[in-house]
Design a protein around this nucleic acid. Sequence first.
DNA 1: TTTGAATGCATATAAATCTTATGTATCTTT
DNA 2: AAAGATACATAAGATTTATATGCATTCAAA
Lengths: 113, 113
Amino acid sequence: MTYSTELLKGTLKTIILKLLADNKKMYGYEITQKVKELTSDKIQLTEGALYPTLHALEADKLVTTEVEYIGKRMRKYYRLSQEGKVKTKEKVKEMSNFMESMVSLLDLKPKKS
Amino acid sequence: MTYSTELLKGTLKTIILKLLADNKKMYGYEITQKVKELTSDKIQLTEGALYPTLHALEADKLVTTEVEYIGKRMRKYYRLSQEGKVKTKEKVKEMSNFMESMVSLLDLKPKKS
DNA sequence: TTTGAATGCATATAAATCTTATGTATCTTT
DNA sequence: AAAGATACATAAGATTTATATGCATTCAAA
């Protein structure tokens, strides 16, 4: 991870939920690659963080799963539940608000300034 | 705290350092109030988080302290060291970059859009 | 005048979250 | 044949913050 990793704390669930909202269904490895791609390699999800988080989302009924096999290799797809869709909107909104607060605190201006 | 508190994780040091960069010297209670003010009450630092963090910054030589008495009541002022000033710039920059990544991930547009 | 709220410091225990390390197995490319 | 990529998973530890608690002073309101 490029950033001191602490910054990611608290944002992982939101990131995953949002990706699922945009992509209908995704599997774990795919999520790690998508995050790399969307952040130009700056955020690299580790499996030790990803899988427990996915399992937690499932336990909370925010996602459902379907297992598929590509040859003999397993793929476990995750998909937002109805409840998950609602939660995603809340979380993204919350993150957005939080970032506004951070802009105020850190006196960060949009690039144009 | 208005946000699910997890979002603050990893940002506290940066916030404190930045406030000290802007205000020369501040004491703990003052910092909590300033954060409330700048975020319209949305972020409320708890003492259990604040004081250990300040002590850690001091242990890392990023801040120096001076004790002052207002009547009989103690005030412990914190001030950035030279090293702290450098570190602050790094941290703020890092946070700024991280937020750009989050914008990409969460597809957050500036308000004007 | 006394009582509660605000000011001001501090620490300990617990909870939450992520990293690091490890493990298993398959597939593809060189 | 070996290395790297794909694909899952968990355990142990580190880090960070919350919650709870404690002490003391000052000020405002009842």
